[in-house]
Structures are given as C-alpha cells and as structure tokens.
Write a protein that binds this DNA or RNA. Structure first.
Lengths: 128, 128
DNA sequence: CAGGATCCGTACTGATACTG
DNA sequence: CAGTATCAGTACGGATCCTG
C-alpha cells in the first residue's frame, strides 16, 4: 500500500499532498485542542477561550477560520444585540475527531515506553 | 471516553500530556516523512537525504535524534573507514507508522471534501 | 461578545563552512 | 560519509488596541 508516496515528491508538488496538509494542520498546535473541545458539542468563542486557557484571541480566531475553511466546523452567528457565535463540528470534523482520538489512545498507550526510551537515551548521551 | 481531558489542563501541566507530545512531534514537519520513508526498511543518512529532497542536513540530524530519543528508531553505526550509519524503525516506531498510515488514508479520502469546502469558503469570503 | 489590525520578540529553519 | 557549529532570515505566536 503506497498511497503516501506522493509525500516525497519534489518540493513544488509537496503542497499538493493531502497528507502534508493534514500534518501541517496538526502542527498548528491549537487545531487539535479545538477539535477535541468541540467533541462535546457546539461551543461559543468565549467558552472555547475559557476551555483552552493559554490560547490568545488571535490564535483562536485564526485556527477557527482555518478549520471552518477546510469544512471541519460550522460557524453560526446569532444576530443578537451583542453578537453571539458558536462553532460545531461538521461530519467531516467528526471523522477527523475520530482520527485524533485514535492518535490520542496510541499516545497514551505508548507514553510509558516513550518516557522510558527517553530516560535511557538521556542517561546514555547526557553525561559526557 | 475521556482519556484526553488532560489536554486542557493548565499550561504547566500541558507538557505532561502524552497527546500533546505526539502532536508536537507531528508538527515537526519532518518526522512524519522520515518515519514513512523508513517504512520500507533500514536506510542510511545520505539515502534519507536523497529521498526527502528538501530537508537540510541540520533538520534531518535533529529529527533523527528526536526520534531516536523517543525510541521510535534505532541508529546503527558501522565502524568502517568512512563511517556508515543506518536507521530503522523500532517496534514502537512501526506502531507509530501504523497511526501515520491511518492518518494518511483519512487525509487522502477526505482531500476532495476539504478542497471543495475550501473553494466554497474562498468564493464566499474572498470577494469583498 | 466576537474578532480585526498592528507591533514586536522568539523560535524555528536553512545555508554555509568545518570536523572525524 | 555523517555529522557539528555558527549565522542570518523568516514566520509564528502573543500582547495590546480598536471596531461593530
């Protein structure tokens, strides 16, 4: 199964690679948190900000825009006096959430192994 | 299933979260490429460099070190006249590869949907 | 309340030159 | 061949101020 061979194309083609796009998304440092937060259901801007304490307004806005652009979440605006907005996952967003959860489970399961390897590596290479 | 609630802990605790660690890894921009390249078997430093054209020696070295430290790959040195080194996935690395492949498949499957959403979003918001 | 605009420091990255 | 060291550019992320 060589579906990701496109990963190693020339630099010019790299941007075309769907896998790169997804990976770049995950690298966004916040998108994953947002998607996981929205797994509980729709959420308002300020609520998201409270749930993810150390994200700035700027980054939250930007990340939400990217996710909306890619069709991973809906943005609903209620034209009330002080405007209210909430975000919820689209079906595509939910399927992405599934991937994230699989990754999260792998991460938790592998964490002890990784920590052990890290400790051993540091012990071997740390003291010169 | 709330195994990743630790994601939204206070900033200080954030570093403890295994999911964050994995995600940060993926954000490394190169680690995924390297792991996927090594899925074919052991590979030498220069071969990796050839397979991933637009990676600098510096980043390749750094990424390899991180992966080695986390126990995702072995580094073998052959003490020949011009030193030879090759890298191969550990069992942990292989299991990580599995996650990556699942993600790759999702990415490819979802790519058309994402592209469509993106086009629609740009059409709606692009022209002011 | 939601978010756009701007400024600015830091951290990541690449290119180059050097070593064993 | 397989790195290490140094330097410089960029782009990311945060803080602050401003708008509808």
């Amino acid at each position: 199964m060589e579906r990701w061979t496109a990963l190693n194309q020339s630099p010019a083609d790299r941007r075309q690679c769907p896998v790169r796009e997804v990976l770049d998304h995950l690298g966004d440092k916040w998108t994953a948190l947002i998607v996981l937060t929205l797994s509980h259901g729709a959420c308002r801007f300020s609520a998201l900000q409270r749930t993810i304490p150390d994200i700035s307004k700027r980054m939250l806005t930007q990340s939400l825009r990217n996710l909306e652009r890619d069709g991973l979440l809906f943005r609903r605006v209620y034209p009330t006096k002080p405007p209210a907005v909430d975000y919820r996952l689209t079906p595509l967003g939910e399927s992405f959430l599934g991937q994230l959860q699989a990754l999260a489970i792998w991460a938790e399961d592998s964490h002890p192994t990784i920590r052990a390897a890290r400790a051993q590596f540091d012990a071997a290479n740390g003291e010169v």
